[in-house]
Each structure stands twice: as structure tokens, then as C-alpha cells.
């Protein structure tokens, strides 16, 4: 890579200090993460898309910006033009032109058609992110999402944070 990547933790920490905000407690997980080997070839695997870009489907309730821990289940046969973006922390201009930048649904459907990927779960799962408390993410949001992944019989999950 020609240039080093942006140091978000350093720049956000500096910005919070400048604005007089309380320092944010970043999560540093130092233990070796859990590991599940791929059980089937990709071409036979059912993938669950989990995205935090504030995507909802027209007709669903939108998100709010104050530690919104709710989820939306988006049918994976959704019409792309029915997808909407509701987010407080990133510029959604491009996501509104093409939701695939944060919710790669057409990209994945294309690879399923090509036979590179076995299939998608019946629903993708979306949420807002920007939840200030990492404890609430760990104890409320993550286990709920894991429950859906099991209920939808996902073989693999693709997480797309923003």
C-alpha cells in the first residue's frame, strides 16, 4: 500500500480531547479469538450478511442515533431500490446511491448465481452501530445476532461494519 492507513483511534481520541469530551474506552481484545474451520466449500455454504450501516427496508421502522441496539431482518431477495440508509456517523451519500458499498447484497447475489457461493440465508441482519457501550454490544446485540444466525442455519457469516 502506497500510504499507511488512517489511524482512526488516534485521530478520534485527539478530537474528543479537543472537544472536551470524556475519553472513549476503546476495546482491546488481547485473547486469541475463537476459531471455527470452514466446514463446507464456499460453493455449498449458506452465508449470512450482517451489516452495521443503518440499512433498513422501505416500510420498516428506521433507526435512531442514541445507542440503538435494535435489529432489522432484511429479506435477501429484497429489491435493491427498497433499501434505505439511516446513520448518524458516516456520510451516507454513496450508500444511498448504491447500498452495496455497505450492504453488498447484489454483489453476493451475483456470486451465488455464478456458483461461487452456495447461497444466502433468508434474511440479512442490519443494525445501527455507534452503540457507545461495548458491554451492551457484547451482552445484548451480539448474542441476539448469533441466535438469528443459528435460526437461519448460516454456515458462514460476513460482517460489514462501517
Amino acid at each position: 500500500m502506497a500510504e499507511p492507513s488512517v489511524e482512526y483511534i488516534r485521530s478520534i481520541t485527539r478530537q474528543y480531547a479537543k472537544l472536551g469530551y470524556k475519553p472513549y474506552t476503546w476495546v482491546y481484545n488481547t485473547d486469541t479469538p475463537p476459531w471455527q474451520p470452514l466446514r463446507k466449500p464456499l460453493a455449498q455454504s449458506r452465508l449470512a450478511l450482517v451489516a452495521s450501516g443503518g440499512i433498513y427496508r422501505r416500510g420498516q421502522i428506521a433507526f435512531h442515533s442514541k445507542d440503538d441496539t435494535s435489529l432489522r431482518l432484511i429479506p435477501t431477495d429484497v429489491r435493491t431500490e427498497d433499501l434505505r440508509t439511516s446513520h448518524f456517523a458516516y456520510d451516507p451519500t454513496d450508500a444511498r446511491r448504491d447500498p452495496n458499498v455497505v450492504f453488498p447484497i447484489d454483489t453476493l447475489r451475483g456470486l451465488v448465481r455464478e456458483g461461487l457461493l452456495g447461497g444466502l440465508t433468508e434474511h440479512a441482519i442490519t443494525f445501527m452501530g455507534g452503540i457507545y457501550s461495548s458491554r451492551r454490544v457484547r451482552e445484548e446485540v451480539a448474542p441476539t445476532i448469533a441466535g438469528y444466525l443459528e435460526a437461519e442455519r448460516a454456515d458462514i457469516a460476513l460482517l460489514v461494519p462501517v
Binding site: Y90, A95, N100, V101, V102
Partner: peptide, 15 residues
């Protein structure tokens, strides 16, 4: 940020 999975309307590179 806001482009984790690709570029708008560029399906070939996103693929």
C-alpha cells in the same frame, strides 16, 4: 469510511 464493501455503482470491482 462508508465504503467497506466497495465503490458505488462499480459492480465489477465490488465483485
Amino acid at each position: 469510511l462508508g465504503h467497506t464493501a466497495g465503490k458505488p455503482l462499480e459492480s465489477a470491482v465490488n465483485r
